[in-house]
Design a protein around this nucleic acid. Structure first.
Length: 637
RNA sequence: GCCAACGUAGCUCAGCUGGUAGAGCACCUGAUUUGUAAUCAGGCGGUCGUGGGUUCAAAUCCUAUCGUUGGCUCCA
């Protein structure tokens, strides 16, 4: 007899060969009914699996978070079954669980579109209703390969995967007439799959390789309860309302026009936000020993030939020519900063030299990658290059990490993903120096108490890097801050410093940016705040609403006083009712509205209204200004 | 660049299977002089992304192209 220990420490004795489900039935028929899978000795297993040794058993129901992944994976199979029934000739590939849902990649003669979703969902419900048992079976790998090579059940993608595996046997999951190669585990029957929704179709290369066939991917999601599903769908809708492209248009921040894709036209308000961010960073940098510079945007091509960028990136660069000379539109600032470094002779005593620039760069990005302000062709980096010695790397990186944390905290970002990308296969520089640089990055993260994950082999060819990723409203990841160690560029462009023994060496360069690009960072800001930017960075701060035309003059006078105090203020002079002006002010997300009418003129006070909060009551002008200044200096929202 | 969908007034969108373009908001004019999320009335406004084709007739069908969206690949 086998001993099965339950979470409450009670022990059940069962015959070897008993299935999980039978054990669960012994615990209770209700539990057996709601069971989705089991965890036996720490391993997630199907309820149909048999027991062969003693162990700890935990039953998963729709109340356990671990069940979600199983249900999603089973729903992926359900979707694949529905799709193959509705669209014969569709070949199966893979259908993994991802954050918030799952997808399945198909190779099908049918072109899927969202119009197909209702039919597929209907079919899925139909199959679920039949409550097919989901049965696991094993087969020798060679036999499975032969089976799927047979024209009668041809699945070339499955064959390809199996041919690369080394296991002797492979497992299958069968539900009704449908079976798929899979490791499992799965729900015991399709009846458990009820709360799902197909979301979108997209092309995706087989194995993520652009040289392989383009498959059709259907994204979908599934939840354990109807409530959870509805909540998620509602959140998706809400997130779309925060989209920076939508909010940016509504708030009149910027536009991008068809004629120059990926190039931003900043409107007065958007540009004010942009300048606010630059001033903010400038102040931080000057306190940390950076020196701001400015370099050309049109540069002789030879500089970028020497740096190696033309050889590697000419497809993605803009070129121009004039008077028989070829120029590049600057795609990155580093070579220009090296040119500044090279002026005069630099001693080791001068290092580190930190050159910063709000450098406008242009890259001719592939048409399909543009995305609002997140990915553009013309952008400005809050760039800086630190020229230093190998020994100085760790200190400089640690200082940068502190700066970045300070800045991200000011903007209220706590959900930051830090990745350390280490040596790629193709690289320059000795392994010894790489090891030093990677260790310096790790040390800096530890000193700054930054938890990081490894991104193996993803460093630049010239050195390892840290990447700081933020999320947009839909949870998509965007790299913002970065610091990259570079052993190559200075040497390549002939930059040197004189060491203490009189010998000359190329300095190490650290490429670093806190925002990444102003454009992307603004997009993230807009989405994270849903357009309700904190007062300190908001391009609109105060709007005065005269109750009627009679009070416009008084409003103008008040406006001048508020402007004199250094705030951004304006008057809504339109001949409309106060309710309408308030509505407009709220809609345009103005942080503070000032209502000015007879009552205020009489009392000598002003009425304040805070966005999304409502009427705050009467304040003297001085009190109001004090309140604004306090909110600005505390960087409150 | 690749796959799919989409592109109608300044904005948001309607326009079924081809019959010659419509609403709300915005804007302009007039009336109203307004008290914490929409005052009323009138008016202006579009060669339906662009080029080509089919047809007696195209916003609608076909085709090419540009752009956008969702992904994939890429991101010095």
């Amino acid at each position: 007899m086998l001993k099965v220990t339950l979470p409450n420490s009670s022990v059940l004795e069962v015959e070897p060969g008993t299935t999980m489900l039978e054990v669960v039935k012994k615990i209770g028929p209700g539990l057996a009914k709601s069971a989705i899978a089991a965890i036996y000795n720490g391993k997630e297993l199907d309820l149909s699996r048999t027991l062969s040794q003693d162990g700890d058993l935990r039953v998963l129901t729709h109340q356990n978070p671990e069940s979600l992944e199983i249900v999603r994976h089973s729903t992926a199979h359900l979707m694949a079954m529905a799709v193959t029934e509705l669209f014969p000739g569709t070949l199966l590939t893979i259908g993994p669980v991802i954050e918030n849902g799952f997808y399945y990649d198909f190779d099908s003669p049918h072109k899927f579109s969202p119009d197909d979703f209702p039919a597929i969902e209907e079919k899925m419900k139909e199959i679920a209703k039949k409550d097919y048992p989901v049965e696991r079976s094993e087969m020798p790998r060679a036999e499975a390969i032969a089976y799927f090579k047979d024209p009668a059940h041809r699945e070339p993608y499955k064959v390809e995967m199996m041919e690369e595996w080394t296991d002797d046997t492979v497992s299958f999951y069968k539900q009704g007439p449908f079976s798929d190669l899979c490791r499992g585990p799965h729900v015991p029957g399709t009846g458990k799959l009820q709360h799902f929704k197909l979301l979108s179709v997209a092309g995706a290369y087989w194995r993520g390789d652009e040289k392989r066939p383009m498959l059709q991917r259907i994204y979908a999601t599934a939840f354990l309860t109807k409530d959870d599903l509805e909540k998620h769908l509602f959140q998706l809708e809400e997130a779309k309302k925060r989209d920076h492209r939508k909010v940016g248009k509504e708030l009149d921040y910027f536009h991008i026009e068809e004629g120059s894709p990926g190039m931003v036209f900043w409107h007065p308000r958007g540009w004010r936000l942009y300048s606010n961010l630059m001033s903010y960073i400038s102040a931080k940098l000057s306190r940390r020993g950076y020196q701001e510079v400015r370099t050309p945007e049109v540069v002789d091509k030879s500089l970028y030939v020497k740096s190696g960028h033309v050889a590697n990136y000419s497809d993605l660069m803009f070129f121009t020519q004039s008077e028989n000379r070829e120029f590049v539109i600057k795609p990155m600032n580093c070579p220009c900063h090296v040119e500044i470094f090279k002026q005069g002779i630099k001693s080791f005593r001068d290092l580190p030299i930190r050159l910063a620039e709000f450098g406008k760069c242009h890259r001719n990005e592939l048409a399909g990658v543009m995305h609002g302000l997140m990915r553009v062709r013309g952008f400005t980096q809050d760039d800086a290059h630190i020229f230093c010695t190998v020994e100085q790397i760790a200190d400089e990186v640690a200082d940068f990490c502190r700066l970045l944390q300070e800045v991200y905290a000011d903007f209220g970002f706590s959900d930051i993903i830090v990745k350390l990308a280490d040596r790629p296969e193709k690289r320059v520089g000795s392994d010894e120096v790489w090891t030093k640089a990677e260790a310096a990055l790790k040390e800096a993260c530890e000193r700054a108490r930054l938890g990081y994950i490894m991104n193996p082999g993803e460093g630049a060819f010239y050195g390892p890097k840290l990447e700081f990723t933020l999320k947009d409203s839909l949870g998509r990841h965007w790299q913002c801050g970065t610091i990259q160690v570079d052993f190559n560029t200075a040497d390549r462009l002939g930059a040197e410093y004189v060491a203490s023994d009189g010998s000359k060496h190329p300095p190490v360069m650290l490429h670093r940016a806190v925002f990444g690009s102003l454009e992307r960072f603004i997009a993230i800001l807009i989405e994270n705040f849903g357009g309700d930017l904190p007062l300190w960075m908001n391009p609109q701060q105060v709007r005065i609403l005269p109750v009627s035309e009679k009070f416009v003059d008084a409003a103008q006078e008040l406006n001048r006083k508020i402007l004199d105090a250094g705030l951004i203020s304006e008057v809504d002079v339109r001949n409309d009712k106060i309710g309408f002006k308030i509505r407009e002010g709220e809609r345009e997300k103005v942080p503070y509205l000032v209502i000015l009418g007879d009552k205020e003129i009489q009392s000598g006070k002003i009425s304040l209204r805070k966005r999304k909060t409502g009427d705050l009551g009467a304040f003297s002008l001085d009190e109001a200004l004090e309140k604004f200044k306090l909110e600005i200096s505390s960087k409150g929202a």
